[in-house]
């Protein structure tokens, strides 16, 4: 399948997101060269409408880029920058250049906006914020006096209470916010925290599909190359069947990513996003549990690259809602539809 945009993304990440870059990022060195290349290629603006600085890409093209970045374990906030830009653009706020991220990302965290004489004041604490330490701006979905409100927060408006990381070594920081904001940095939101959570779940679903495809291809290559008992281990039926199951999970994750992409392009239906995130999360768990045994001890080392994929799978499956949370949302919708509504609900185009 030849797709010029996807091909150029494959080349870019192959050239700039090598093992050394990923290790360095985990040790606290922001991968500037990789980020600059991605920004120059227009990938960071791929989800933006053209009037907000977008590059005329479809949501499907943007998500394909994100999937490829994840397949290369690119240690950059591409998903978060896309998501933040989209949130700001939806609210009609300007979209700054550079690294962007979103807050809050945990259900229990609330940031509150109140009016002041000459503008707004934003307060609160938000934990597990991706790349807050590197962000040029944070797109905040706050509780305002008139409901959900979007605020554009600059680094001088918050302090980092904690520098954290997820299992994959990606920054997940705690922000403490207590700052005044000008009127032109605040706008009513067109949706609430549930939709932001769904949008986050949608991008993580796409990323899981990418990392899972990497875990599959590494496992297949290793099984073809590793010789034991006088033959490649991939010639053993037990190994073949485990890898066949792994391929099935990769396929399911691809389907989930497509569903998430469709939902992101129109309406963020919680049933579709929830089904996608939950299915991809389950696929991540099963697949990581098969890719590791296929590799044996080498897959458990820091030197070999399988863990770049599997540690991402183990992190992303829990971010923006795990399987229990989203299957619960789907299940409630199904039970509310009842036996006669079930078929139309699941087969709606």
């Amino acid at each position: 399948m030849s797709d010029p945009l996807a091909d150029s993304a494959e080349r870019l990440f192959a050239a700039h997101a090598g093992k050394d870059v990923i290790h360095a990022a985990e040790n606290g060195v922001f991968p500037q060269a990789l980020w600059d290349a991605v920004a120059r290629a227009g990938f960071t603006a791929a989800l933006l409408p053209e009037h907000a600085g977008g590059v005329g890409a479809t949501a499907a093209e943007a998500m394909a880029l994100l999937r490829i970045a994840a397949a290369h374990s690119a240690p950059i906030p591409l998903a978060e920058t896309m998501l933040a830009g989209w949130l700001l653009a939806e609210a009609g706020l300007p979209v700054p250049q550079g690294v962007l991220t979103v807050a809050p990302v945990r259900v229990s965290d609330v940031l509150t906006l109140r009016r002041t004489e000459d503008g707004w004041h934003l307060t609160g604490t938000a934990s597990r914020i991706p790349w807050a330490r590197d962000a040029a701006a944070v797109a905040v979905l706050a509780e305002g006096p008139d409901g959900p409100t979007v605020a554009l927060l600059r680094p001088d408006g918050f302090t980092l209470a904690r520098h954290g990381r997820n299992l994959a070594g990606e920054p997940r920081d705690t922000m403490a916010v207590d700052t005044a904001l000008a009127t032109d940095a605040v706008a009513p939101a067109t949706f609430g925290p549930t939709q932001l959570r769904a949008a986050g779940a949608a991008v993580r679903t796409v990323q899981i599909a990418g990392a899972l495809s990497r875990a599959l291809s590494l496992s297949v290559q290793y099984a073809q190359a590793r010789v034991q008992f006088g033959r490649a281990i991939g010639k053993f039926q037990a190994v073949q069947h485990n890898l066949a199951v792994l391929a099935g999970q990769a396929a399911a994750a691809l389907a989930a990513a497509d569903m998430a992409t469709d939902a992101l392009a129109g309406g963020l239906d919680p049933l579709r996003v929830g089904a996608a995130k939950a299915r991809a999360g389950e696929a991540a768990s099963i697949a990581a549990g098969l890719a590791h045994p296929a590799h044996g001890a080498i897959g458990f080392t820091q030197e070999y690259e399988l863990h770049f994929a599997t540690r991402r799978l183990w992190s992303w499956r829990d971010e923006f809602g795990n399987e229990a949370e989203w299957n619960g949302v789907v299940g409630r919708a199904v039970l509310a539809a009842g036996p006669d509504g079930l078929r139309p609900l699941l087969t709606a185009a």
Binding site: A251, A252, A255, A256, D258, M259, R272, G274, A275, A276, A278, R279, E282, E323, A324, W326, N327, G328, V329, V330, G331, R332, A333, V334, L335, L346, T347
Partner: peptide
Amino acid sequence: ERAAVAIGRLASHTLALRRL
């Protein structure tokens, strides 16, 4: 809730399979 999660899981799998 336990039932909603379990039924939801079956529906999520069904939706992914439809797509495939």
